[in-house]
């Protein structure tokens, strides 16, 4: 079972419907006791970084997530949920994130080094360039996924970059380290490839569980 973290900022419906299509059990909850029963968590997110962290802090979910991940609970952040995994963001003033991965979140510049403007948000289907093997990318070697975002992750930790997408800037599209993963795009809206990634995450949980607590 997957625990979808409900902190009032996610597109919970589309993520949960995607899991239903995969026939994988889930709960939607804001209650740590409930979420702890899951084999892994999904942190969805639509909206602004600052509002999201305020919600997570107020509901004490920040501490819960950090503690569980430290114990070995797998976590998948989607879109804003992926950005929240990093150290901090520039969106509406500097806000501290969950600090599970190294890097910061900045606005896509919207202007090239040569001074040419381009569109922000980065919206639509973009291709993936794969950099590293990962359980999340099993059986996926090419294809396009659906993005909608104006901020992107900047990281010097090349190890977390599993796949990127070429815009003017190189957009980290799939990130991961040990049992923490993130996708900047919406797997639940990315047709067959996105569904495959969600399936891969479910498979990862099945293989890992229930032993993760002993790690």
């Amino acid at each position: 079972m997957i625990g979808i973290i409900d902190y009032g900022m996610g597109n919970l419906y589309s993520v949960s419907k995607a899991l239903e299509r995969l026939n994988y059990d889930y709960i939607i909850s804001a209650d740590p006791a409930e979420l702890r029963k899951a084999k892994g968590l999904i942190l969805p997110g639509v909206g602004a970084f600052k509002d999201a962290m305020e919600q997570l802090n107020q509901t004490k979910l920040t501490d819960f997530i950090k503690e569980e991940v430290a114990k070995g609970m797998p976590l998948l952040g989607i879109c804003l949920g992926m950005q929240l995994l990093f150290e901090e963001s520039d969106e509406n003033g500097v806000t501290k994130g969950l600090e599970l991965l190294k890097g910061r979140v900045e606005r896509i510049p919207g202007i090239t080094a040569e001074g040419q403007t381009y569109k922000v948000p980065h919206m639509g289907w973009n291709s993936l360039d794969f950099h590293q093997q990962s359980a999340l990318l099993d059986g996926i070697s090419e294809g396009h996924v659906y993005f909608v975002h104006s901020y992107y992750v900047k990281t010097n930790d090349q190890d977390v970059l599993l796949a990127t997408s070429p815009y003017d800037v190189e957009v980290p599209a799939v990130v991961g380290k040990e049992h923490v993963f993130g996708t900047q795009f919406h797997p639940e809206k990315s047709s067959a490839i996105g569904m495959q990634m969600l399936q891969n995450y479910a498979n990862f949980l099945e293989k890992r569980s229930p032993s993760y607590e002993q790690i």
């Binding site: 299509r21 919406h186 809206k189 990315s190």
Partner: peptide
């Protein structure tokens, strides 16, 4: 539609 499709 949302429950059956994985496109925006």
């Amino acid at each position: 539609v949302a429950s059956q499709l994985a496109i925006p």
